[in-house]
């Protein structure tokens, strides 16, 4: 089933992402919602900036979801929406939603997708602090 994948500079509609995966064939909908936290490594975060290489990010996201379908063939539907641009504290940065017949696979597939997304999808995060900014994870 074609997954619902998008990268947007608009606020994420979480209810719409959940609605996108709902189907009568699935008894379980599982979601992960990533939000902007007010501190990072002991520094107070004021806001975040996400930059995306959209075409590659969507290509890699497609690969991640294809891997999830291969690992959990019973997976019914998947939605992933990632925000880009400037985000305030508390804003939703990413939503992953999956629907499966039973709950165990929904937890596993949802975790796999968010964990793998963080490793391969071409989105970068710049944190803005009281006293400067930093590209997250750029340096060892």
């Amino acid at each position: 089933m074609t997954p619902h994948l998008s990268i947007t500079d608009q606020p994420i509609d979480v209810a719409a992402a959940l609605a996108a995966v709902q189907t009568e064939a699935a008894g379980a909908v599982n979601s992960f919602i990533g939000t902007v936290r007010n501190q990072s490594g002991g520094r107070r975060v004021r806001r975040l900036h996400y930059e995306s290489y959209d075409s590659m990010a969507l290509t890699q996201l497609g690969h991640v979801v294809a891997q999830a379908y291969a690992k959990w063939p019973m997976l019914e539907k998947v939605a992933v929406v990632h925000r880009k641009g400037t985000l305030a504290l508390g804003d939703v940065a990413v939503v992953v939603a999956v629907a499966t017949p039973h709950r165990a696979e929904s937890f596993a597939a949802c975790q796999f997708i968010i964990d793998t997304l963080k490793q391969v999808v071409t989105i970068w995060k710049r944190e803005e602090y009281e006293d400067g900014t930093e590209w997250v994870a750029a340096h060892p």
């Binding site: 590659m56 997304l117 963080k118 999808v121 989105i123």
Partner: peptide, 24 residues
């Protein structure tokens, strides 16, 4: 796509430098 070091580059390829990603 992520490209291995031995991959040849052609004139029509779309090439990008990818520093450590930090989505999510």
């Amino acid at each position: 796509e992520y490209a291995p070091a031995d991959q040849a580059l052609g004139p029509n390829d779309e090439i990008a430098l990818i520093p450590p990603v930090a989505g999510g």
